[in-house]
Amino acid sequence: MAKRKRSNIKNIVIFFIAIVIIFIAYLGSPLSKVRNISVEGVNDLGAQQVIDATQINDNKMLMSVFFEKKSIAERTKKKLPSIKSVSFGTHNLRDLTINVTEYQTLGLIYKGGYYYRIINDGRIIDQKMKAPIGNYPIYSGFNSKKDLKKISDIYKNLNNNVKTNVSEFYNAPTKLNPYRVKIDMNDGNKVVADIRTVQAKMQYYPGIASQMKKKGVINLEVGAYSYPFKDKK
């Protein structure tokens, strides 16, 4: 019985030594390193932009990515603040997938020679862009966070057929109407409206625009009517 017990212990020791040897051999082989990297879930960011922010390359051990995934995710979000979350997956033993969730972009603001992204809580992402991205509106003159959040929420809730046509929002208050806003549309028309009612009234925009013989102004401040641009002489 004692002899059998010693034999079992010996076999267990040999097994663990073999496992350690295999593990060490694995760590020293190309099989332990990342081979291909793919990025899923990006919308406004580029895949290579995300990969660069993670600082993962083909010399990185796949195992270390998962051991360090929390710190890699934090580093990536710090580098690219428009990222909400980062996670990692693997397939084919050596291929790594970086799964990204971005904050919803509701427009851009231009200041100091750069464009900055506005996300769905009215927050401005501190990430400089030399040129505008996507088909998002630009906000001008909305200097307070409260005003910016209000107008970006209005944009967020517009019908899709109207939303994709919006080019730029301008804060344009007057003494008579401190709530006045102007909107440049991608189809060439301009809208004058009241920020308190513009979300509800913009649903009428497609119908009014379709009846206009020339490009012009659609006034939604009081009622809803349109008139063509004045011809330049």
Rank of each mutant, 00 (worst) to 15 (best):
V222P: 15
D121S: 02
N11W: 00
A193D: 08
I133E: 12
P178H: 01
I14Q: 11
Y227L: 06
N99T: 04
V39L: 03
N120W: 01
S71P: 08
V39A: 02
A131F: 10
S71A: 05
D153T: 07
I22M: 08
I19M: 09
E68H: 05
F169Y: 09
G216T: 04
S64C: 06
I109H: 07
D126E: 05
Q55N: 15
T164Y: 01
S226G: 14
T54L: 10
I195L: 10
S7D: 09
V181P: 14
Y110A: 11
V100H: 02
S85C: 04
K201W: 10
L220E: 00
G113C: 01
V86Q: 12
F66K: 06
S29V: 02
D231M: 06
K79M: 10
I72S: 07
I12E: 12
V181S: 09
G223L: 01
L62C: 04
S38M: 05
A2P: 15
L108C: 09
A209D: 14
M129W: 11
S87W: 00
I9F: 08
L108G: 09
Y139M: 00
Y204D: 12
S32G: 04
K5D: 15
A47D: 13
H91M: 07
N177W: 02
T164G: 06
S226C: 06
K111F: 01
V50R: 14
G207P: 14
P178D: 03
H91S: 12
T197N: 10
Q49D: 12
S32P: 14
R6P: 15
S82A: 06
N92K: 12
F169N: 01
K190M: 05
G188R: 06
A18R: 13
A172R: 13
Q49F: 00
L220C: 10
G141M: 03
A224M: 07
Q49Y: 03
V86T: 05
T174G: 12
S85A: 10
